[in-house]
Design a binder for these strands. Structure first.
Length: 467
DNA sequence: ATGTCC
């Protein structure tokens, strides 16, 4: 047992020494390390129960004092009722997602919020949730896949000039999917984001730098995809004439790097709020006045830039393989927090599966693997905190989709729309998603449609059950 | 979302 074991449990300042002393005493009494660690966790969870006496009494007293200090500083009581918030497409949103948003609107740090029409249940804040807080950032208000984002490239190529077989070959050769997937050293591509000084600013980031370098330019699993399709512009926009174009659309995030940053900081936030109402446990926040909050903010923004760099490498590789230059491109992050003016005050606006939609801002809202996606322009709706949905949103959870959808029906849906799929799981089937037309209709005061993108050849990771 | 505990 050493200081590393203790600090890993989250003990801080004077509690580190006291925990170490108690652990050493227990070791001397012949207790196994695993059991001692369990005891330390129990003391941490409920210090009051150990105050009366015994080897952990001093530690319990110190933890109690630290908790009281944290509580008085940060305020852990929830409001008795949620602050009011706007809901777009209430008829499309399951009660569980509303209940999660209600809890978020009761946090003492919350000032405003909104729920987008693609909303569904997530960890902590629902997917499709927008939450504005005062000087505090909530790691699970951003989500596990920090910086998850979209990118569209439009090519100077007629859509039918790229044959299905060729598109398949290009995607298979130039994209890489799957949890844990990385590139061998000789295959790796470089990017300026890997050389930022930010990596040296925190031990955690320094530790994750190699993983980030190995995974840059890859696409991950779940709902991530890269697809060739047809972009239709009914009138001139994006610097392009009206017409149809070959385009590439990708959905990708910050891979293992971002996931580990999210896990580290949400754990830290939970430990800093031991007395937070259990209903809001996954909404534990970090104050931006504290070192921890500043460290998360720095790591989160690095993960955001890293995720966008992933897209850049994927698009550059495919454009190179096609032998063309990109005519126009659009990108946006939809899992991130921003400093934003809300009602004359600067707040921290978390978007967890929500597209930034300030007035005039371009964004991308995909439909499903076999339904159209849309290039949109924000209308800057104040009550939506200048946001929109980030897609169609799930109407079936992964398990429900795997249990209820039939492979034959999914294949028929793809065939009917002329979509070729590489990989993809039944849990990502179009039928597992809300109808994108319904979702767009519910937010026509949040965004205007600029162009439509119909997928033709789609690559995803293989899910639990293939299609 | 991630090889599901740095």
């Amino acid at each position: 047992m050493n200081g590393k074991h203790i600090t890993k449990l989250g003990f801080e300042r004077k509690a580190i020494g006291l925990a170490l002393a108690a652990a050493t005493a227990r070791e001397g009494a012949g207790v196994e390390r695993g059991e001692i660690l369990d005891e330390l966790r129990a003391v941490q969870k409920n210090p009051a129960a150990y105050l009366a006496g015994g080897v952990y009494a001093e530690l319990a007293a110190e933890l109690g004092a630290q908790n009281a200090l944290n509580d008085s500083r940060q305020g852990v009581a929830l409001r008795p009722a949620p602050l009011p918030y706007g809901v777009w497409g209430a008829d499309l949103i399951e009660p569980g997602a509303r209940a999660q948003m209600d809890v978020a609107m009761r946090l003492p740090v919350t000032r405003a919020g909104a729920l987008m029409p693609d909303a569904h249940v997530g960890y902590g804040l629902p997917i499709g949730g927008v939450l504005a807080t005062d000087n505090a950032v909530i790691p699970y208000g951003v989500g596990v896949d920090i910086g998850c984002s979209m990118r569209l490239s439009v090519f100077p190529v007629r859509p039918d000039a790229l044959k299905v077989e060729e598109a398949r070959r290009l995607l298979l050769r130039h994209t890489r999917f799957g949890a844990g997937v990385a590139f061998e050293k000789r295959e790796r591509e470089d990017h300026a984001v890997l050389h930022e000084a930010t990596w040296d600013s925190q031990p955690l980031l320094g530790h994750l730098r190699d993983k980030a370098a190995a995974q840059i330019g890859s696409s991950g699993s779940g709902n991530h995809f890269a697809e060739f399709g047809t972009l239709t512009l009914s009138s001139a926009d994006l610097g392009l004439e009206a017409g149809t174009y070959l385009a590439l659309l990708s959905h990708s995030g910050s891979r293992g790097f971002g996931a580990q940053v999210a896990g580290h900081f949400t754990g830290l936030a939970e430990r800093l709020h031991p007395n937070l109402d259990p209903a809001a446990k996954k909404l534990a926040w970090l104050s931006l006045d504290a070192e921890e909050g500043q460290a998360y903010w720095q790591a989160m923004n690095l993960a955001g830039r890293y995720a966008l760099a992933n897209h850049e490498l994927i698009h550059a590789r495919l454009a190179r393989a096609l032998g063309v230059n990109v005519l126009a491109s659009v990108h946006n992050s939809h899992n991130l927090a921003w400093k934003q003016q809300v009602g004359g005050q600067q707040l921290i606006v978390h978007r967890k599966g929500a597209t930034p939609a300030a007035r005039g801002q371009l964004g991308l809202i995909p439909g499903s693997m076999a339904d159209p996606g849309f290039v949109v322009r924000g209308r800057g709706h104040a009550d939506a905190l200048a946001s929109a949905s980030h897609g169609a949103g799930r109407q079936l959870g992964r398990k429900a989709a795997a249990n209820t959808l039939v492979k034959k029906e999914v294949t028929a849906y793809l065939k009917q729309r002329g979509v070729t799929l590489i990989g993809g799981g039944i849990d990502e089937a179009p039928q597992a998603y809300k109808r994108i037309g319904d979702v767009l209709e519910r937010q026509n005061d949040l965004v205007d449609v600029v162009a439509q993108f119909m997928p033709r050849v789609v690559r995803m990771d293989s899910g639990s059950q293939d299609i």
